[in-house]
């Protein structure tokens, strides 16, 4: 009965219920007032009664603000990260968009639907020194599915996920690595309450995010494939091409590097076949002579074999090595 009377009076002062309904605050400023804050209200009235001026106070109302469980996750690694034979660091931001100190369980999933390969997770770490770079041995390591330290309301932490390519990956394949963060207190549909489990002796309530959020970082495999082909030209002492004693055999070894990546530390080595003798000073790389000695140039040769260090060769490039032997 008293509620009915209350509503009638609210109407009377022009605050018609249907008019109030128009706007429901979907967004609040930042994370809002902190969990545990007391909202206290006391009304005062002044009046004249006969010749006397009087004043009176109401009781003081006190409402404690409970903890809102909310989180946001975003990708900080740009649109696509290229990954080759070296591991790469993917960066995510986890922001506590709730209003209380909260820790979040971090789940890293490299097996996202649609992946052409699943990256191998090498490490998960929080950027604990805040320098926006992964510092192995310095940044706090996290175990997958375990919690971050407590994050203050509106606080953001960067999380690094170090990944490498699986052996099965091939050039130009794509993949996503997902990081999700879930409030340790609990998650679920908005409005789910966890009585007494909020910070500062409050209840905790799941906010619009469901207290669970995720973001993906995308990977593009960039690999090189090296194909070696070896051929021989023979010039015999009689002007022909027969492999007879005294004939000179020129071996041609071509390293063809294909793919979008690069071949690193590429080295071509070959042994001098039994029954032949290396012809001094005939080692060539891309048509340019290399000295036989082990020195500043890329190659060396001896009676036992030849060796050429090509270093890093980009995909789409061929490198040809030649040397001569004489059939004994």
């Amino acid at each position: 009965m008293s509620k009915y009377a209350f509503i009638k009076h609210v109407r009377f002062f022009g605050l018609v219920a249907t008019a109030i309904a128009a706007v429901h605050p979907a967004s609040v400023i930042a994370a809002g007032v902190s969990a545990g804050t007391l909202i206290q209200s006391t009304a005062t009235a002044t009046y004249t009664a006969g010749t006397m001026n009087g004043s009176v106070q109401s009781n003081t109302l006190s409402v404690k603000v409970d903890e809102l469980l909310d989180v946001a996750v975003s990708s900080l690694s740009g649109s696509t990260t290229t990954i080759g034979s070296n591991q790469v660091v993917l960066t995510y931001a986890v922001t506590n968009t709730g209003n209380g100190d909260e820790a979040f369980n971090i789940h890293v999933d490299p097996a996202v639907a649609g992946n052409q390969f699943d990256a191998v997770v090498q490490a998960i770490a929080i950027d604990s020194n805040g320098n926006n770079a992964y510092d192995a041995g310095v940044d706090l390591q996290l175990t997958n599915h375990n919690a971050t330290p407590s994050i203050a309301p509106d606080g953001m932490v960067r999380i690094f996920v170090v990944v490498s390519l699986p052996a099965s990956a091939s050039d130009m394949q794509t993949s996503s690595v997902q990081l999700s963060a879930e409030a340790v207190t609990g998650s679920g549909s908005a409005g789910t309450a966890y009585a007494g489990q909020g910070t500062s002796s409050t209840d905790a309530v799941v906010g619009a995010s469901g207290a669970l959020a995720f973001a993906n970082n995308d990977l593009l495999a960039s690999l090189a494939v090296v194909t070696l082909t070896k051929s021989a030209n023979i010039v015999d002492p009689f002007g022909g091409t027969q492999p007879v004693p005294g004939a000179i055999v020129t071996y041609i070894i071509t390293a063809a590097v294909s793919g979008t990546g690069q071949a690193e530390g590429l080295q071509i080595a070959d042994v001098i076949p039994t029954g032949t003798t290396y012809q001094n000073g005939t080692l060539k790389l891309e048509g340019a002579s290399l000295s036989d000695a082990s020195d500043s140039d890329a190659g060396n040769a001896s009676a036992s074999g030849v060796n050429v260090n090509l270093g890093t060769i980009a995909g789409g490039t061929n490198q040809t090595v030649k040397f001569d032997v004489k059939i004994n």
Partner: peptide, 29 residues
């Protein structure tokens, strides 16, 4: 359970218990 974004209605009920009319009645919140 109250969290940021929630709507609250604060009300003040007044009651003149006295025997005479009260004038210039101003309630401040």
């Amino acid at each position: 359970i109250v969290v940021p974004g929630d709507r609250l209605i604060f009300s003040t009920a007044y009651h003149n218990n006295g025997a005479m009319v009260v004038k210039n009645f101003v309630v401040t919140n």
